[in-house]
Design a binder for these strands. Sequence first.
DNA 1: ATTATGTTTTTTGTAAACAATAAAACATAA
DNA 2: TTATGTTTTATTGTTTACAAAAAACATAAT
Lengths: 204, 204
Amino acid sequence: MSGSRAPKILSVKDQIAEQMRSDIISGDLAPNTKLNEKELAERFGLSRGPIRDVILQLTKEGLLVSKNNVGASVNSVLDPSLQKLMISLRRNIEVFAIEQLKDKLTEKDFGALEKILFDLQSAFEREDFTEVTKIDISFHNYLVHKAGGDDLVNIWYPFVMRMRLNYKRITSGVECVNEHEAILNALRAGDTAKAVKGLKANIR
Amino acid sequence: MSGSRAPKILSVKDQIAEQMRSDIISGDLAPNTKLNEKELAERFGLSRGPIRDVILQLTKEGLLVSKNNVGASVNSVLDPSLQKLMISLRRNIEVFAIEQLKDKLTEKDFGALEKILFDLQSAFEREDFTEVTKIDISFHNYLVHKAGGDDLVNIWYPFVMRMRLNYKRITSGVECVNEHEAILNALRAGDTAKAVKGLKANIR
DNA sequence: ATTATGTTTTTTGTAAACAATAAAACATAA
DNA sequence: TTATGTTTTATTGTTTACAAAAAACATAAT
């Protein structure tokens, strides 16, 4: 087996979806902005077909809202009570993940997580906040996926996306890295309770 | 304003999606069954385009799993720990809904809910269990939607679908009607605690 | 001036043809 | 007989063209 990890191959649609998520979360596409399929198709150099697929996907993720024969537009922020519920549910999922992972994480896992944190730090230094958001998510994604596979990721992901939509601000740099480091250290030490505590502090 | 409620107009895609959900939940489409776009298109008398949209939608709902260049197949049941998590999360959402709805339900709402229960009873008597499942879900849907609108329904729905997939058999008739009646009565009485208790008994 | 109505334009929904990929069937050699 | 490589077939992904619906606009009546 080769030493370097296999680079992830993403389908065209996945890449477009990724780009559009970034645009929405970064605020380039403001809430309630109407999307035009033809425009998007031209921008990405594709036909409308794949674009429609992506729109449907992001709609299911809660980033867009679609109406029949009218089209899709960027979803607006949640009202506070729903946002609170979302946070609570996402916490439940990730706490579940950590509990499942007790004594299950290998050296390879810790290595991967450490690399993610390194990249996170690096993105902060470059002040590439869009990338920061993505890497932040990938840290959590790693744990959730390890604990529950694609199934769990699929239910978890919409919560993350929906929450991101509500955070217009960027968390302060060191704080974010430190929080994730604390979680990782607790996991390394096999201290589930501490990891859970760190997680709850991080998800807010 | 007219006395009769406007009948709900469903898009073609929504109707196909509904039919396929029924097929999956009823077991007509067994887990791991591979879906063929062309076949489906012919069966529903459409082209592959809308079928693909539906497949994507059901994939996001967790009923199907898709692989690049390979296609979609019916998802398999969750392992018990994930199933437990799902139940817990769904309960959280619906408890939230009931709490939000305290003193918010109108006479019209109660009437609608009562009608749903009547239809539920009727479907049982006809032994139309696919319909029973749908009506059961619509009862919960009513409350969730009233509490959190489309946003909340969108998060909630995948849990319901995924759980249904795990239940191969229908709960005993009277029991199901009684459970929902108990919830409705508690709501009528404004007894949130009792409604929550009934809900937790019902979601399992 | 304002509302109502009809027409044009734009945009989304659907269908059908085409290209690319993966699975299956088959053949060949160790 | 198994393993590997090639050809064929079937299925998905994408594009293009067309149909239907909504939005924008213009016109006419009150």
